[in-house]
Amino acid sequence: MSTRIQTVFAKGRPAFVAYIMGGDPDALTSQRIMNALPGAGVDIIELGFPFTDPMADGPVIEEAGIRSRKAGTTLASILDMARTFRRDDDTTPIIVMGYANPVYQMGYAAFSERAAEAGIDGAIIVDLPPEEDGPLRAEMDARGLSLIRLATPTTDAERLPKVVSGSSGFVYYVSMTGVTGAALAQGGSVAEQVTRVRDAAHLPVVVGFGVKTTERASQIAKEADGVVVGTAIVKALHEDGEEAALDLVRALADATHTAR
């Protein structure tokens, strides 16, 4: 039986993946946005959970995490968001994304069990390298959850097999060296890297960490299996409100889906 993630990539078109920071600016608004994402064209939801030391986050996501924590968001309440979402949507994959410390504090077994029960499909833990994610991956594997690894422009040919060997669902290609929302690498180099990672992993490859416009989403979607946008959506929600954020999501999703 196919997983939710596999079903998305079996559609034969580039997948649009939208990141939001759970609990930003508050629980009710964040839940409304999450619930509306599939109707706006989102294929996979990346649901961020806040952390005090977000080393890979640019200022927009970092500030969203601060707002979320001030609103009282915890990893447990992020899982509750997924549980609420699943009351009406049992098909859209949900990937939680964040840092290892909150997961470690909850306990790897408890996190994996509670995530599976809430309807989570996988996790991206940005600061947990392959050498250290074995205990978490074992707990997630036992419950049918995907631990999604990150490959970067600096992941060389010697390290790439180790990075992709433990990934499942898809591989997230970080398209630049830097924090979220920074400048994206040139299109040609991204295309070459996507091919390299895909050949090594035998998994779909999605590209994120710098896609901000419909034009760039379309360009990347011509080569990759999926496109991730986070910073632009989080910024639109904060500066312009829910409808503006969802309008942007619709435009990005359409540009991704029609790229090829």
Rank of each mutant, 00 (worst) to 15 (best):
Y108D: 02
P129K: 09
P50E: 01
T214L: 09
G178H: 10
A27M: 04
A118D: 05
S68A: 08
R260M: 00
A151C: 13
P135G: 14
G41H: 10
V42R: 02
R196T: 13
V8A: 06
V8G: 04
R13F: 12
I233L: 14
R86D: 04
S146Q: 13
M106H: 06
P50G: 02
Y172I: 03
G230P: 11
Y99F: 11
G230K: 09
V190A: 08
A71R: 00
R13D: 02
G230T: 03
Q186V: 11
I95T: 02
E62R: 09
D133G: 11
G188A: 15
S112L: 08
A15E: 02
F209Q: 02
I78T: 05
E132S: 14
L28R: 14
I125N: 10
L147H: 13
A157P: 08
S68H: 01
V190C: 10
T52R: 03
T256R: 08
L237R: 13
P161L: 04
L160W: 10
M1T: 11
N101Y: 05
D80E: 14
R32E: 11
D199P: 09
E239W: 11
N35W: 02
E46R: 01
F9P: 06
V171I: 06
H257E: 00
I5M: 04
G188P: 11
A36N: 06
A36R: 12
Q219M: 13
V179A: 15
G166M: 03
G12C: 05
I33K: 07
G187V: 10
A64Y: 07
Y108W: 14
T84P: 01
L237T: 06
G22K: 08
L136M: 10
A18K: 03
T74E: 02
V234E: 07
F111H: 08
A221E: 12
A221S: 13
E139S: 12
V207T: 04
A36G: 02
T155H: 09
F111Q: 07
A100N: 09
Q6K: 14
S175W: 08
H257Q: 04
Y173G: 07
G166N: 09
F51M: 00
T214C: 15
V249L: 10
A245C: 09
V211Q: 06
D89I: 00
V227H: 12
R69Q: 04
E62F: 00
G187H: 15
D121A: 06
F170W: 12
T195A: 15
N35G: 01
V164D: 10
Y104L: 14
A151G: 06
Q219G: 12
F51V: 00
D24Y: 13
G178W: 14
I148A: 08
T154V: 08
